[in-house]
Design a binder for these strands. Structure first.
Lengths: 107, 107
DNA sequence: TGCACGTGTCAGAGAAAACTTACACATGAA
DNA sequence: TTCATGTGTAAGTTTTCTCTGACACGTGCA
């Protein structure tokens, strides 16, 4: 990441991914260091399936990155870490990004 | 506006307000110049009640500002313009903002 | 009086998001 | 074998968001 001018659709997806208190907390927690799903769920105080859903949303937006690793005792651990994104939100930046929005989103 | 460090809740509201293609378009359109509701609805191609709803969401987040004015021919016109916000979205900024999030949002 | 233009709001449908509960599988250790 | 740990996912509920289609009010002008 570390992209100055995301596409309109990309920006919309990033904003949608961050527009949730729990997901903000997740990004905050991960920016303190990488972590695996179950442990992260315990630290934040959320059920694992719920966390799993939010992690997917954040990863789809490119805000975090996950990797499956094998621990010493043979367990498959899914580690997540933050991507180093940097987006500036100003009226001008939004006007610029809006030009590359998929028209109408439906038809 | 033009605030470097919004509260966690403020940031969440701003992000939620911008996390919608139509609202991005509205901000983009308004950053080209102030406008009144009916005209804006025509330019963007949206029904007036729908636009009204989105404008309220944007104004509640502090991203746009509305003012009721009387036109020359006596009509009450509601003009909107963009606030000059400037928010930087990075993992560190989110970690910082997340500390001031209302805990749990519910109980 | 009636039309055209502006404002606002309410009720309900439809769709999407958030969340819970329950299930599946795998491994190492007791 | 059973338990504790890790993974994922599917079904169903509740809540929130989005959008439409009325309806209300106001003014100036033909």
């Amino acid at each position: 990441m570390t992209r100055a001018r995301p596409t309109g659709d990309e920006l919309a997806e990033m904003l949608a991914a961050l527009a949730n208190p729990l997901r903000l907390r997740i990004v905050a927690q991960l920016s303190a260091g990488r972590n695996y799903v179950s442990q992260l769920a315990r630290e934040i105080g959320v059920s694992r399936p719920l966390l799993h859903m939010h992690l997917q949303r954040l990863e789809a937006a490119g805000l975090i990155v996950g990797s499956l690793e094998l621990s010493d005792d043979g367990k498959a651990m899914k580690y997540y870490e933050v991507a180093d994104f940097d987006v500036r939100l100003t009226p001008a930046a939004i006007a610029e990004a809006a030009r590359s929005l998929t028209p109408k989103e439906n038809d």
